[in-house]
Design a protein around this nucleic acid. Structure first.
Lengths: 153, 153
DNA sequence: GTTGATTAGTTGATGTGTCACCTACTTTAC
DNA sequence: GTAAAGTAGGTGACACATCAACTAATCAAC
């Protein structure tokens, strides 16, 4: 067994605080979303991705990689959303293996109703407490870490 | 309906990047942990909290608030860990409603085996890409946000 | 054009989280 | 003391996530 390199105080503080912050903030966001709308946080993310597109449709595999979800999870989740009338599926004409997920009017209505409250919550729980410099620093860190992860695929 | 205040570019960039970073990093950490040990990320967190204590025992409600878990989730999860022999439960002598969760030798062995690999992964996926200033900035941000959340209980 | 590898998506079993509700004990107020 | 309120924890039903195995279409090689 080789020596374990434990985290030093600064590293441990940053890592721990970040983990706990994320837990608290995301937990509270999810709680408020389900309390104030009929959408889960997962539903919300799917609907945001769909309504970001001009035609409100995205291929399943693309949605999966955008959200960082496994295809199985996505398949199950979309099936539940179809059953609830938030989205539908459509065959892809150019690749007969594939499907699109398409927002329905009901899905658009649900996210339109939920978004304002969610944005208020994001501000209240996170953004409002930070300076411009801090937001910049956060974005730099996250993008650095993500770029490294991409690079190590 | 009042106007929705959308996120500006800087805010959106910071928020989005942070969310995606967390998804990717925590997802990869969880994947590696389950691949290289018999512990889930949740198991790992419970065992860390227990082995942090000199006597390896924590009251359930305390563990719950440390981890930010609901009591029901904790109850279910601990029950599963008991079944797997990683922890046991012990009645609290001073409050007869309460119980302690106690690490077993097997639990200690499992986390001792898993911790080195996990630390390597935390470094590789996160810490190694950041400067001391960046770590400091992250910790400041997270602590600020957490303090605000505490304050708004 | 036939074979093999890869990719898109599904399915079912199983593990995990959440919600509403429950018991048992403790604390507070009178 | 006793009633009411609060706290520690558990339970069962259901929603959700993960894993392995599967079908079907496309792509690459020859």
């Amino acid at each position: 067994m080789s020596e374990v390199q434990w985290l030093n105080e600064q590293e441990a503080r940053a890592w721990r605080a970040l983990q706990i912050m994320h837990l608290r903030v995301d937990g509270e966001l999810a709680r408020r979303l389900t309390a104030e709308s009929s959408l889960s946080y997962a539903d919300y993310q799917v609907l945001v991705a769909l309504t970001d597109q001009p035609d409100g449709r995205v291929r399943l595999f693309e949605l999966g990689s955008d959200l960082g979800w496994e295809k199985s999870r996505l398949s199950h989740h979309v099936a539940r959303m179809v059953k609830r009338g938030l989205v539908t599926k459509a065959k892809c004409p150019t690749d007969r293996r594939g499907s699109f997920v398409v927002v329905t009017d009901e899905g658009r209505a649900e996210i339109a109703a939920a978004a304002p409250g969610h944005l208020v919550a994001v501000r209240e729980l996170f953004i409002d407490h930070l300076t411009g410099d801090q937001l910049e620093a956060i974005a730099d860190v996250a993008e650095t870490v993500l770029a490294a992860a991409e690079h190590a695929d």
